[in-house]
Structure formats: structure tokens, C-alpha cells
Amino acid sequence: MPAGSSYAYYPGCTLHSTAREYDVSLRLVCQKLGIELRELKDWACCGASSAHAESRLLGIALPARTLQAAEEMGLPLGVACAMCFSRLKLASHELADGDTLDQVGRIIGRGLGNKATVVHMLQVLDGEREALPIKRTLEGLKVASYYGCLLVRPRDIVGFDDEENPQMMDRLVEATGAHAVPWGFKTECCGAGFSVPRADIQLKLSHRILSQAKAAGADCVSVACPLCHSNLDSYQQVMRREYEHEIGLPVLYFTQLLGLALGFEPRELLLKRHITDPLPVLKARGLA
């Protein structure tokens, strides 16, 4: 991706609320690298997994409205949330069918050509990997890159990376000077939206992932999805109570790690917003 490229930017609901630090760090990093993010006007929710659970058509129509807006801007659609990315990719795949395209075009009330390409911002930043103006190398920091489900599966539709052992985030992490630890739970499910209706399941799955990251020797976990982040970070306190197991593993957005390497301060990257404080680990490595 050449410097100076522009994207129609779809933050998705959480980047404007619970995951503001992801939005802020992404914007800082992009600005530094000369990538322009033009936020879509009046964007709405992608429907997450709930729209699709009631109606196949609704599950396509909500993301189609976003696809149409990017198409109108004539720019590729840049997405930061793995859930939104997945919904947009799946919708675009379904819209390849002419009848579906016509029907959904009528439903969203606008001409729809299904012309916008959808990219995750991790893919965009991976393209900059070789030319990062590193100010502060993250040497000594051991990072477990966690991809979760929706970035990598189904591979033939999202076209992202290997489904079982993806590498994209690992090599970006290594480009900052940090060490990406090899581990086996990169694409295991964190429990997604079950943190509300079946917290027991989400807790167990997230705990397993964190335990594995810890066993692999990681100092922190890197993520590219606000839902994964919330499950892995916020619930460590509950894990301590339920499993009597202190995890204490900070979970950062990959954009925050990049931001640190590009010379931004922890304060600018809103590192303080995490429930498991990453500053002690960073300070111990002389990085904050």
C-alpha cells in the first residue's frame, strides 16, 4: 500500500465508545504514515452476529448500506473491528449474486454496485511494514499476536491469511523490534458476544487463551478487534475470582504497539484505559 493512500473509514460502534483507544491509536499511526482515513458520514451498525441470527436479508442489508457509502466515495473501505470486517466481507460475498444485489439495493434504497473493496486496517498497515519510521524499538518485549476467529475465517471469503497459523500481525509486531512468540491459540475463539448471556463460556474460553499466551512466555497480547480486547482484558478480574488464577497479562491493540514504536507516548495512545495496566510491563522493558 503506497504512502499517501486514502480509505473510506468505518470505525464501527465500539471504536466510538468502549474501544476509543483503538480509534485514537489507529488515527495517530495512520497520520504518521501518511494514510488518510476519511470517516463515513452517518454510518450505522453492521448488525454484528445478531442481525444475521434473525434474518439473512437483514444481515446483508445493514452492511450493504456501509458498502454503498464507500462505493460512493470511490475509495476502499478500511475497517478496524474484526466483527465488522467479517460482516462486510460476507455481505459483499453474498452481493456477488445478481438477484441478491437487486433486492438489497431496493431495501437500502440506493443504487448498489458492490464495487467497494473491504480491507482490515491490519492489512493496510502490514503494507507499511518495511518502511516504518521507528523511533523507539520495542526490543525485549514478547508479544502473543491474537487474531481470533473473524479475521481469518472463512478463508475463501475474507481472504486474509492462514486460518490456523496466521502471520500478518506477528510480522508487524516484529517490525517494531518486539518478539512475536510462537503459540497455538492465535485463532481460538474468545467467546465473542457470550460475555453477556453465557459469561461462564466466554470466561472459560478467554481464560484458556490468556493462559496459553502466558505459558508461551508473552509479556502482553496484541489484538485487532474490540470484542476480543474486551473479553481478554476486562474479564481478567473476574477470572481471578472464578479460577483463583492471576493472569495479569496486558492486552493491547496492535495499533498501540505500533504507535509506541513510532514514538507516541503511552498517554497519547490511551494505554491507561485498559483494565489490566500495561505500564508496569512497558516500564520494566524501558519502553514507557
Partner: peptide
């Protein structure tokens, strides 16, 4: 809640679906 002018369009999408 976040406010978006898109909300009325979203309601229309639900109804048409």
C-alpha cells in the same frame, strides 16, 4: 447512546426487510 443521522435509514431498512 451515540446519535447518527443514519438511524432513520436503518429503521427503514428493518421495515423493508
Amino acid at each position: 447512546p451515540q446519535r447518527t443521522k443514519g438511524a432513520s435509514q436503518v429503521r427503514a431498512i428493518f421495515a423493508r426487510v
